[in-house]
Design a protein around this nucleic acid. Structure first.
Lengths: 203, 203
DNA sequence: GTCTATAACAAGATAGAC
DNA sequence: GTCTATCTTGTTATAGAC
């Protein structure tokens, strides 16, 4: 029997509870490290009740990942070819950093997936993501050709934006331990990345 | 009964085989995702034979991680306070990138550990790593105070070096899929990072 | 819809022959 | 030292009462 489409209020609420708990556990432990017991306990439900809402463990994970992928493309999608190059690139950096701050668990879920060779999202990466990156890389290359930004490899540029912004979410544990518990690890990040990319892309 | 200290040639050889296979599997699947069956198969030994050389799964993992941590500090350790600031920082970036290229599995093993909250290396991070980072941050701050490099937060600077260099190892799967199978993902990385950090730290 | 109880199946670890 | 066979535990998933 398939899990029901969420019709009632209580069903929608429980599905949300489960997905939120599962995001906690999967992002912190990885797919195999997570157990249904942990997720159930964190959601305040029994394990069989979890499996009333989702057919199996994998479906919970796939749901989280799928929901995430749409949001994942948005910041880059918004990079406008007819905008001011500097403002567009710095704006993209800010939106990406904002995502790391607001959705660190999602970032870690994604990082776990990539680290393991992206087995479940290979289609997404080779498909939608690659298409979008190729499109925006061409835009950036055009700006460089016009001398409106420095002449940089657009792929390295995009990857460096991902690396720097996602690091604040994915390696947050390390930053916190190195800097000490009291520190907000995002403090100063936006201004640092603003400076870094402004100096990098200045023509 | 404890596993034997490696005395004979064959023991040393088998321990190496096991650790190399385990590094493959742990770095790709994470601690919980890895199974002794996979490691044994990859090493060409039987599962009980693995456990003749190591008491249990955790000891294999701990051995890999411990061996890694020494090497992990070296590039930053070599940043010399009395050297030329620009050359020292760019040299550190190059050494770190070189480690990502030569030891991508080790980088992913480390990344897996941090993503999960660094449960097994918290002591290392709060201890040796924090001490080294604090020490070198002070050096960098001194350079900035003397106007020999730009005035940047040294912690954000160090973290950004980690983020950018390790990304080439940890997110290699994504880069390969976005760029296409034929591409060497490290191609152009050194010159890109050279440019990035040279422009960033120029006074 | 939710629960207790339990089946079914990995996966870590051990026993004991060779 | 290495293997086959097996024990034991943890985990996913199902049965069936309520």
């Amino acid at each position: 029997m398939n899990a029901p489409r969420p019709r009632t209020r209580i069903q929608r609420r429980n599905r949300k509870l489960i997905l939120d708990a599962a995001l906690d556990v999967f992002s912190a432990q990885g797919y195999r490290g997570a157990t249904l017991d942990q997720i159930a306990a964190s959601a305040g439900l029994s394990k069989p009740n979890l499996l009333y809402y989702f057919d199996n463990k994998e479906e919970i994970h796939r749901t989280l990942l799928t929901d995430l992928l749409d949001a994942w493309l948005a910041p880059l999608h918004d990079l406008a070819p007819d905008g001011d190059p500097q403002a567009e690139i710095l704006g993209y950096v800010r939106r990406k950093l904002q995502m790391s701050r607001e959705y660190p668990r999602e970032s870690r879920l994604f990082a776990n997936e990539i680290l393991q060779g992206a087995p479940r999202i290979e289609g997404f990466i080779r498909g939608d993501l690659k298409a979008l990156v190729d499109e925006k890389a061409a835009v950036i290359r055009g700006w460089a050709a016009q001398g409106r930004i420095a002449d940089l490899d657009p792929y390295h540029l995009i990857f460096s934006i991902w690396a720097l912004t996602q690091h604040y979410a994915d390696f947050e544990a390390q930053m916190r331990m190195v800097r000490g518990e009291g520190v907000d690890t995002f403090e100063g990040a936006e201004s640092y990345l603003d400076t870094l990319f402004a100096r990098l892309i200045a023509p």
